Amino acid sequence: MKRSPYDHCIENHENATLFTTHQILESWIQTAKQVLKRIASRIDAEIFETAASDCYLMERIWKLLAEIEDLHLLMDPDDFLHLKSQLLIKPVNETEAFCFRSKGLVEITKMSKELKHKVPFILGVEVDPKGGPRIQEAAMRLYSEKQESNKVFLVQALQAIEGALKRFFYGYKQVLVVVMGSLEAKGNRVVAGSGSGSVDSLSQVFLEPTYFPSLDAAKTYLGEIWNHELGGSGLARWKK
Rank of each mutant, 00 (worst) to 15 (best):
K2P: 06
R3F: 11
P5Y: 06
Y6A: 12
I10F: 09
I10A: 05
H13M: 13
N15V: 11
F19H: 11
F19N: 07
H22M: 09
H22V: 02
Q23N: 13
L25R: 11
S27N: 15
S27H: 15
S27A: 15
W28C: 05
I29K: 05
Q30P: 00
Q30D: 13
T31S: 09
A32V: 05
V35A: 07
L36R: 01
E46L: 12
I47K: 12
F48Y: 14
F48Q: 01
E49P: 03
A52Y: 06
D54E: 15
Y56H: 12
M58Y: 08
I61D: 02
W62C: 10
W62A: 07
L64P: 00
A66Y: 06
E67T: 14
D70Y: 08
H72R: 14
L73W: 08
L73H: 12
L74T: 13
M75A: 15
P77M: 01
L81D: 00
H82D: 11
L83R: 00
I89T: 10
K90Y: 09
A97I: 02
F98A: 02
E107S: 11
K110R: 10
E114S: 09
K116H: 09
K116R: 14
K118T: 07
P120C: 09
F121P: 06
I122L: 02
L123R: 00
G124N: 08
V125E: 07
E126N: 14
V127M: 14
D128V: 06
G131S: 03
G132W: 06
G132M: 06
R134P: 00
Q136T: 13
E137D: 10
A138E: 05
R141I: 10
R141P: 02
R141T: 11
S144F: 10
S144T: 13
K146G: 05
Q147H: 06
E148P: 02
F153M: 14
I161E: 01
G163K: 06
F168L: 15
F169Q: 00
F169R: 01
F169G: 03
Y170N: 08
G171I: 03
V177E: 11
V177K: 11
V177T: 12
V179K: 15
M180R: 01
L183V: 08
L183H: 00
K186R: 01
N188C: 14
R189S: 15
R189V: 15
V190N: 08
V191L: 08
A192S: 07
S196N: 12
S198W: 14
V199I: 15
D200N: 15
D200R: 04
D200M: 04
L202Y: 01
S203M: 10
Q204A: 15
F206P: 03
L207Y: 11
L207F: 13
T210E: 09
Y211L: 13
F212W: 08
S214M: 05
S214V: 03
A218G: 04
A218F: 03
T220V: 11
T220F: 13
E224F: 13
E224Y: 13
I225E: 06
W226C: 12
H228R: 08
L230R: 14
G232Q: 11
S233A: 14
G234V: 07
L235Y: 05
W238R: 08
K239E: 02
